[in-house]
Amino acid sequence: MELDGKVAVVTGGTRGIGRRIVERYLEEGASVVFSGRDEAKGAQALKELEAGDRAAFVQGDVTRRQDAERMVDAGVERYGRLDVLVNNAGGMPGFAVVGETDDALWHDTLAVNLHAVFYATRRALAHLVPQGSGRIITLSSIEGKQADPGLGAYATAKHAVIGLMRAVAREVGPLGVTANCICPGIVLTDMIRDQGPLAARTLGVTYDQLLGVFTGKAATGRATTVDEVAAVAVLLAAEAGAGITGAALPVDGGATCS
C-alpha cells in the first residue's frame, strides 16, 4: 500500500473530489482526518467509509483561520503526526463577468479558494518542517491555467494558489517537504450539478451547452472523473511522487495541452 502508516488531513472531504481522495488514501493504508461544514454529512460519510479508527471528521469552516488551523492540528492530536495536507475545500459562491462582480462575490471567492489554503498550509508547515518530511497538495483547477467568462474571481484564486504552492515548494524543498497543485478539468460533482445551471444562465447559455464548452476543449471529449483526480493525489502523497514539487499537474483530458 502506497500510504501505509501515513496521516493525512483532507479539507472538504465529505463529497465530490475530496471524498474520493479520502477513500483512496484509506485504501492505500493512511489514516485520514477530513473536514466539512455540515456535521450530519460528516457523520454520514464516516458511516459509509467504514474505516473505524483510521478515519475522523472535523466540522468547521475553512475560511475561518481558527477552524482551518484546528482541522490541521486534528491529524496530529488524533494520530500523533501529520504527513499529508490536501487543500481540497473550495467552491464558486457566484458567477459574474469582472465588470459586474461585486465586492461580496470577490471576497467570498478568494476566502474559500485562496485564504483558506494559506491558513491550512501555514499551519501544516509548522508540523511538517520540524519532522523533515511531508506533502502539501492543493486542488487548483483548469481555471488556474486559463480564464473563462463569468469565472474571473474563481480563476484569479485558482491561479493564485498555484503561485502559493510554488513559493512553498521553493522555501521548504530542501527540508523534505513538497508542495503541488492538481488542476482538474470539469468534474461532474454535486457542486457542478448544483451550481452549473446558475453559471449557464450568467453566460446566457443552457447547462448542456455549458458542459459542452468544457468537454469540447478536452482531447478526450469528456469530463474528468473523481477517480482520475484522486489517483494523482495518491501519487503526490506517496514516495513515488517525492521528486515532484512546485508543479501544477493538469488532470483535464488534455483541455489545456495547447
Rank of each mutant, 00 (worst) to 15 (best):
L203T: 12
K145M: 15
E171Y: 00
V84S: 06
A238W: 01
D73T: 13
T225C: 04
D252V: 08
V117W: 00
V129L: 08
L175Y: 08
T156H: 04
R170L: 14
V129P: 04
F118S: 01
P184S: 11
M1Q: 11
D227V: 07
D38G: 07
L203G: 11
L203V: 11
A147K: 07
D67A: 08
L188G: 01
A120V: 01
D38H: 13
P174F: 07
A199C: 05
R65W: 00
W106G: 03
A242W: 05
R37N: 09
S133W: 04
V97T: 14
L175N: 07
E2G: 02
A43F: 01
D67N: 12
E50N: 15
I142V: 15
D227H: 13
T14S: 14
A56P: 02
E228V: 06
A160C: 07
V97K: 15
G91R: 04
G163R: 07
T121Y: 00
A147M: 11
G18A: 07
D38Y: 06
A219I: 12
T224W: 03
V161D: 04
L164R: 01
R15A: 14
L236V: 04
N88Q: 13
V213A: 09
A240S: 14
L125Y: 04
Q59E: 14
E143C: 10
V161E: 04
K6R: 15
R222W: 03
Q44F: 00
I192H: 13
A89M: 12
E100G: 03
V213W: 13
T225M: 08
Q195V: 00
I21K: 09
Q195T: 14
R19N: 11
I186P: 10
S141A: 08
G18N: 05
V84W: 09
A240C: 03
I186C: 01
E2N: 13
G36F: 08
L175I: 02
D227K: 12
V58S: 11
D38A: 09
V76F: 03
G246K: 04
G12W: 10
K145C: 01
V177W: 02
F214S: 08
V98Q: 13
I136E: 02
G13C: 06
I142P: 00
T156G: 11
S35G: 11
L203W: 11
A55I: 07
A153N: 02
L3T: 10
V232M: 14
I136L: 02
T225K: 05
T202H: 13
A116G: 07
A240L: 09
G150A: 03
L164M: 14
G144K: 03
G254L: 09
H107M: 10
T224Q: 08
G173S: 06
V172P: 07
I186D: 00
A51V: 12
K217E: 10
A104I: 12
P174G: 06
V112L: 12
D61F: 02
A96F: 12
A30F: 08
Q66Y: 02
V22D: 01
D108S: 14
G75Q: 05
L188H: 11
R135H: 04
A247N: 05
V98W: 15
W106H: 07
T224S: 15
E171Q: 10
G163E: 03
M165H: 06
A233V: 09
N87S: 14
A153L: 07
D61S: 10
A169P: 08
G75N: 08
G152E: 03
A255F: 09
I136Q: 01
Y154N: 04
A45P: 03
